[in-house]
């Protein structure tokens, strides 16, 4: 599986990671190497099996619909790079 530079740029955009133009080609090469190695999975016949998403065969439990904690706004924003009045602050997004 060979990824080109453009695909890498579009994946980087999807996951919001800035990658410098000169780093796109080496990264394409690295990711292609990893994906080529992963390609061996194609040999496996999986036609008769269901995907496994959880190894724990536990039933989800019901619990009382009650408040466990709350009134923690200051804790919630405590680590924010920028906040005011318990709101997270970000650059203006609507002109």
């Amino acid at each position: 599986m060979d990824l080109d530079k453009e695909t890498v740029a579009s994946v980087a955009k999807l996951c919001r990671i800035e990658i410098q133009e000169q780093d796109l080609t080496p990264m394409a090469q690295e990711l292609s190497n990893i994906l080529s190695w992963i390609e061996q999975l194609r040999e496996v016949d999986v036609s008769s099996c269901e995907p496994l998403s959880s190894v724990v065969e536990a039933e989800l439990k019901m619990r009382d619909d009650t408040v466990m904690d709350g009134d923690l706004a200051e804790d919630v924003v405590g680590n924010a790079p920028d906040s005011t009045n318990n709101y997270f602050l970000v650059p203006k997004v609507i002109e």
């Binding site: 890498v8 980087a12 996951c15 919001r16 990711l31 650059p91």
Partner: peptide, 24 residues
């Protein structure tokens, strides 16, 4: 841009690589 720059400079190469593979 703030998201991309923050994540581009905050994560190291292996973490970026795995996020990229996962996203792909």
């Amino acid at each position: 841009q703030q998201y991309s720059k923050t994540r581009g400079s905050g994560f190291g190469p292996e973490v970026k690589r795995r996020i990229m593979i996962g996203t792909y």
